[in-house]
Amino acid sequence: MPPLDITTSDLGQFGAPAETFCLITTEQYAEPLSLLPGDGCSRVLRLTLPPGARLGEVIERSVPEGAHVLAVCPGRFLDSPAERELGGRKLAVLPAGSTPLTGEQISYFLRTAARTDADRQARVAEEFFDRVGESRRLTIVDAASGTEAEFDHELGDCVWNQQAGVMEPGDQQIFPPGKLSVTAAEITTFAPDARLLGLNGDLTLRGWPIVHRHEDPADGPDQQRLFEALTPLVANAVTLHITAGSIEGVTPQTAAAAPAAAELDKLLTDDPRYRVIWELGFGINTTTEVIPANCGPNEVYGATGGVVNLGLGVTPATRFALAFLCPRSSLLTSDGTAVLGARKAVRRGRMQRISSAGCGCH
Rank of each mutant, 00 (worst) to 15 (best):
M1G: 06
P3G: 11
I6P: 05
L11N: 11
Q13K: 08
F21N: 11
C22F: 14
T26S: 09
S34L: 08
L36I: 09
G38P: 11
G40S: 05
R43M: 04
L45F: 11
R46M: 12
I59M: 13
E60G: 02
S62C: 02
A67E: 07
V69N: 09
C73R: 03
R76D: 01
R76E: 05
L86R: 05
G87V: 01
G88Y: 10
G88N: 14
R89A: 08
A96E: 12
G97I: 10
P100Q: 15
E104N: 07
T112E: 07
A114E: 08
A125I: 01
R131G: 01
G133Y: 14
R136M: 10
R137H: 07
A143W: 12
E148W: 07
E150P: 00
E154W: 02
L155N: 01
G156R: 09
C158W: 04
W160H: 04
A164N: 00
G170R: 03
G170F: 01
D171S: 04
L180R: 04
T183H: 10
A184D: 14
T188L: 01
A191N: 04
A191W: 05
A191V: 08
P192C: 10
D193I: 08
A194C: 00
A194V: 00
L196K: 06
L197H: 09
L197D: 07
G201W: 15
P209V: 07
V211F: 09
D216Q: 04
P217G: 04
D219L: 13
P221V: 05
Q223R: 14
R225L: 13
R225G: 01
E228C: 08
E228G: 02
A229D: 06
T231V: 03
T231M: 06
L233I: 02
L233F: 03
L233N: 01
A235W: 15
T239L: 12
T239W: 14
I242D: 03
T243A: 10
A244H: 15
G245V: 05
V250R: 10
A257Q: 08
P259C: 15
A262K: 13
T269S: 08
R273K: 04
R275I: 11
W278M: 02
F282L: 03
I284A: 10
V290A: 15
P292I: 02
A293K: 12
G296P: 00
P297A: 14
G306H: 09
L322S: 13
S329A: 13
T333M: 12
S334G: 11
S334K: 07
G336I: 15
V346M: 09
R348E: 08
S355R: 13
A357K: 04
